[in-house]
Write a protein that binds this DNA or RNA. Sequence first.
DNA 1: TAAATTGGCGCC
DNA 2: AAAGGGCGCCAATTTA
Length: 553
Amino acid sequence: MSLAVPVGEDGGPVGAVERFGGVAEAVLAHPGVERWVWQSTATSYPRVLAAGARVERCYDVEAAELLLLGHEGRLGEPRSAAAAWARLHRRPVPPDPPPRAAEPGSQDSLFEPASALPLPLDALLEVYADQLRRHDATAHPGRMRLLTAAESAGMLVAAEMNAAGLPWRADVHKDVLRELLGERYGGSGEPRRLAELADEVSAAFGHRVRPDLPAEVVKAFARAGIRIKSTRKWELEEVDHPAVRPLLQYKTLYRIWTAHGWSWLQDWVHDGRFRPEYTPGGTVTGRWTTNGGGALQIPKVIRRAVVADPGWRLVVADADQMEPRVLAAISRDRGLMDVAGSEDDLYTRLSDRAFSGDREHAKLALLGAVYGQTSGDGLKNLAALRRRFPLAVAYVDDAAKAGEEGRLVRTWLGRTSPPAVGAADDDGGEAGMPQEAESTPAAATDGEFTPGYASTDARARGRFTRNFVVQGSAADWALLMLAALRRATAGMRAELVFFQHDEVIVHCPEEEAEAVAAAVRDAGDLAGRIAFGETPVRFPFTVAVVECYADAK
DNA sequence: TAAATTGGCGCC
DNA sequence: AAAGGGCGCCAATTTA
């Protein structure tokens, strides 16, 4: 079974892995090989890591297939290497194996193939060669090749993070739980504090109300003469009633209990490490997801349990205002590039120029533009934003318009939005191949983009594509940043252990901490230049060297 | 009875 | 001041 191909200096294969017994053996036998082409990093690389080896770079055929299918407007077709080969030879295309469920704490899961359909070596090379041609056929081949390389690097980082694990002190976690929730008692193990709060809620209403049943809570408020549409936090905060305070407290603690309580700890933390399974490109915008463990939603209070090993430190680095900086870089709006061309707080600089010093209004206006705000003060401020930064606003407006019209949009490097449901029908002849929306600012400077006429669905679609070009291009940048950081720390004992959209944590010996912090800062600007070319836009980080994650920021 | 959906909320 | 984008996870509820 061939899973990997070492690629020599001429770009051709060095040999087949059968000769070496397996991918780990092949890597060990070729210490000088810089780049490996293989079917799936998730399948092959954990074996390599388990054998104590690493690779410098790789080309992940199945990751590339997904990106290329997306670019070709064919998202949803099977993306396994076997499927790609079948399409190439006009054979019946096998469906992808169903995604694996999360397996808490199972080390075995790391060695399960992500694709159940491994290709022989020669077939894999045929698919690889075809993929290289398909890169050349895209709107920006250089960017698309960069995207595939970045996604492949992300796969390496993810596998290494999965192997390293996030340092996690179960004893500290339990202390936090006991402090917040009290002891557990009864058959369900319900914490004492939750029971007390539930009693307080019932007492405030004068009858038994279960706080975790929204319908019951809404009814109870109705009986008390208060009409609420939902039990959402922001709506409850407006209500003046003695039940509100214990109710809100209950919700917060209940969530910690169910999502990050004792059973979570038992499932996901072993030998002092939390090991979520990271999935690069798990979302359509290119953001990562995790398969189990909820690593990207760790509540702030629980972060106290993330503690460096003795003599080691956590370098916690948070990219500052990443999305507006990315918008500046991709829209080439001169005013916004100027605002983003400094390490200083972007929203403050923005407010100095366009919002008479009101930082909050500036921030809301920008986020409103990126998210597609439809009402409220944000709209008024959006007008000011549009006057001062016309190209930046036109960029996201164009993306929204494309979405409403059922066209595709792409991130800066070429990751492509999924086709709208039913878009193929609306398009007439070109079924299944929607046109690309070239978000060139020049096309839309003639006037303001007014939704209004579009259907609710189309408007929702527009908000999605509007956000997609920014969130997705930010994910492009983040991948390159991770790749640069991985390369910079390759000679150190430091390990990347956590990544969450715009935040990265490196676990390293105390004496390496300053070098790691410097490497992070360099990686931010380097990624900006590689992704977006020469640009004045800066990509600074807030970096904290701490022993405990909770102490960062 | 199991799978899918909903409401809510944590993170960005 | 208002409730826009992306996720994952849990429990309860509805649907198949």
